[in-house]
Design a protein around this nucleic acid. Structure first.
Lengths: 329, 329
DNA sequence: TATGAATATGAAATCGATTTCAGGTATTTC
DNA sequence: GAAATACCTGAAATCGATTTCATATTCATA
C-alpha cells in the first residue's frame, strides 16, 4: 500500500493524502474524511524510509556503547530509549566492545544521514575520535567524559571520589588503599584518582605507592589488585573506583582470611543493583546512569531541533549510599 | 556529496559510479580508477536511506525487549549486536517496559519496511500479538517463548527446572519450596513450575500449597514470597525460578535468622554475573542468554535471506553451576 | 461588483541512490 | 569479413513519500 493507492481509493491526489496525513495545507472536509476512511480501512502505514529520504531526517538517533551487557550501559540505554520514545525517535544501538576502531567506524557509519544525532558513551576519547567527530554534521553528545566543544553529560567523578575518600577518613581511616583504572579513561582513571589523592593530601595523609593499584574494570582485576596491595601494605580501608572492582577486592580479602568490614573496609562507586544485596552490603556512591541517559537524549534532541547550543557541560549528581562494608574506627 | 557530484567530478554518469561502488556491471578500468579516486578524495559515503528506498531493504533489524536494563535482556542484545555486526546489519532497539500495548505498537511500527526483521524477546505472547504478527510480512523470531508457526529460540525451561529439582532431591532434600512467577509468562511461569512439580511427583514427593509461592520477577518479591513460605511450612531447600528471586529469598532467610545453606538451601535459575560473588555463592542453572541472542539473530538473517523456513524451534542449552548455596543433607 | 486574500487541489519536481534500456564499441568466432 | 558476443556507458525510470508551483474556486472587503 503506497500513498498513490490510497489516493486512488479515496479519489484524490497523493498530495492531498499527504496533506491530511501531516495535517498541513488546505484540504476540504469531505475529502479529508474520505482519505481518513481509506487510511483506516486499509490500515495504511506510510513508508518511513521514503519519508526520511524526502525530509532528510530519520527520527533515529544512534547510541554508541562500549559494552551493552554492562549494567552501566544498559541503564544508560534504558534512559535514552525512555526519552526517545516520548520524543518519537527510534534508537539504533552500536556495541563496540571497547574497540576504538569500531567506535570510529560507527561514528562515521551512523552519520551518513541515517541517524539524526549520536550519543557516545565514551571511555576514552582520542584525537582520532575528535578528528572524525569534527567532520560530522549531526549533533553528538558525549556521555561520561568531558570533551570541550561537545555537549557532554558527565558524572561528577572528582567530587564523588573526593567525598568518598573524605567519608572514609571521617570514619577514622588513615591507611586507605586505592584500586583504580588506566588513565586512558579520563573520568574514571584520572578524575577519580585525583579526587582520592587530593583529599588525602588535604587531610595530610599520603597515598603511598604500596596502597595504590591500577588495572582493568573487571571483578577479577579487583581481586588481583587487592592481593597486590595486601602484599605491600596494610590498609584499614580500600576505595575501589567501581563496584565490580570492590567486589573483587572483597573476595580477595575474604580469601586471605580478612573480615569485611571488621578487619578492612571496602567501598566502591556506581551502586550497581545488587550492591545492597552483597555480603556485606556495599557502601558506594550512587550514580544516576539512567538519568544520564535521559539527559543525553534530551540534549541530542535539543541539538537536533536547534534549541540548544553545542558544547554545554551537564553534570549529574551522586549520592553516598552508606551500607555495611565500612567500619567506624 | 551525492552520487551525482561524484559522477561530475569523475567525468562519468551516476550509473557508472553506482556500478563501481557496488561492483556490478561493466566499467572500464580507467573510469573505475577515476571514480575510486574521487570517492577516496572526498570520502564519499552513499546515503543509506536512498539505498534502502530503492532496494526495499534497510539492513536493520529491530529487537523488542521487555526491559533493556535487565541483565538477561542486555546479554541477549549483546549477542544480537555481535552477529548483526558481522552480517552487516544495524540493530534498532525497542524497550517496552513490559507494556503489551507498547510491544504491539513496536511490532507494527518496526515493520513499515523500516526494518528487515524483528526479534521479539517475549514474556507473554497474547492473541493480540499473534494477530499483529500474522499480518506482518517481515520475518519475526521469538526469543524465550515457544510460539507455533514462528521461529523461536527457547530455553529448555522444563528440563532445567526438572533437573534443578532433581539435584536438590539428590542432595537429600524432601521439603522443597518453590518461588515462581505468574503463568502469563509461559516459559518461566508454567514450564519451570511444571518441571518442579513433575520431578517432585516422579520422586513421590509433594509440593504442598504451603511450599509454593508465586509473584513478580524482582528481588523484593523473592523476599516476600520466602517469608510467606516460611509462615506456612518448613522447607529444607527453596527453588526460586530466577536468580533475583533467589537473592530475595536468601535475604528473607537471613533476616529471619536462618543460615544459608546450613539451615535452608536456596537455588535459582539464570546464573547472573554476580551469582558466584554472592554470599553464599549461588547454585543456579547457567543460561546462555548471549548465545540465545546470537541464535536469534542468525535465525532472522537466515529468514531474511530466505535460506530458512519459518517455524523452526531452536533450544538452547543450560548447565548446572554447583556453588555453595546448597547443603547436602 | 470588483478585487485581493484565503482556500483547495493536482501535476510535477524532488530527495539520492539503483537499474533497466537502448545504443554504442571492441572482441571473438566461423 | 560478417555475424555473434562481450564489454561499456549514460539517459531515464524507479523506490514512496513531500512540497512547490500553477491554477481554480470561494470568501471577504471596499
Amino acid at each position: 500500500m503506497r500513498i498513490k493507492d490510497i489516493a486512488k481509493l479515496a479519489g484524490v491526489s497523493p498530495a492531498t493524502v499527504s496533506r491530511v496525513m501531516n495535517n498541513n495545507g488546505y484540504v476540504k472536509e469531505d475529502k479529508r474524511k474520505a482519505v481518513l476512511e481509506v487510511i483506516e480501512a486499509v490500515d495504511y502505514q506510510p513508508n518511513e524510509i521514503a519519508k526520511s529520504l524526502k525530509s532528510q531526517k530519520s527520527r533515529m538517533i544512534g547510541v554508541i556503547v562500549p559494552k551493552i551487557s554492562t549494567e552501566t550501559a544498559s541503564r544508560v540505554v534504558a534512559g535514552v530509549t525512555h526519552v526517545a520514545k516520548t520524543a518519537g525517535y527510534q534508537v539504533l544501538i552500536a556495541n563496540t566492545n571497547l574497540d576504538i576502531e569500531e567506535e570510529i567506524k560507527y561514528l562515521k557509519f551512523l552519520s551518513n544521514k541515517s541517524v539524526d544525532g549520536i550519543i557516545m558513551m565514551g571511555t576514552e576519547v582520542t584525537d582520532r575520535h575528535l578528528e572524525v567527530m569534527n567532520k560530522l554534521t549531526i549533533p553528538i553528545v558525549i556521555l561520561g567524559q568531558k570533551v570541550s566543544g561537545y555537549t557532554s553529560i558527565i558524572h561528577n567523578d572528582y567530587d564523588a571520589s573526593y567525598q568518598m575518600t573524605e567519608y572514609l577518613i571521617n570514619q577514622g581511616h588513615k591507611a586507605i588503599g586505592f584500586i583504580g583504572v588506566d588513565e586512558k579513561d579520563y573520568a574514571v582513571g584520572v578524575l577519580r584518582k585525583k579526587g582520592y589523592l587530593d583529599c588525602l593530601s588535604d587531610y595530610n595523609l599520603n597515598g603511598s605507592d604500596g596502597l595504590i593499584a591500577i588495572g582493568d574494570f573487571d571483578i577479577d582485576t579487583g581481586f588481583k589488585m587487592m592481593k597486590k596491595i595486601l602484599a605491600k601494605s596494610q590498609p584499614t580501608a580500600v576505595f575501589a573506583v567501581t563496584d565490580h572492582l570492590a567486589i573483587g577486592a572483597i573476595h580477595a580479602l575474604l580469601d586471605q582470611g580478612y573480615r569485611v568490614p571488621e578487619d578492612i573496609s571496602v567501598v566502591g562507586i556506581g551502586d550497581i543493583k545488587l550492591a545492597e544485596y552483597l555480603n556485606p552490603p556495599l557502601t558506594t556512591m550512587h550514580y544516576t546512569f539512567k538519568t544520564s541517559g535521559q539527559m543525553a537524549a534530551e540534549a541530542v534532541f535539543d541539538l537536533i531541533e536547534n534549541n540548544a547550543h553545542k558544547g554545554e557541560q551537564l553534570m549529574t549528581s551522586f549520592q553516598l549510599k552508606e551500607r555495611r562494608s565500612v567500619k567506624h574506627l
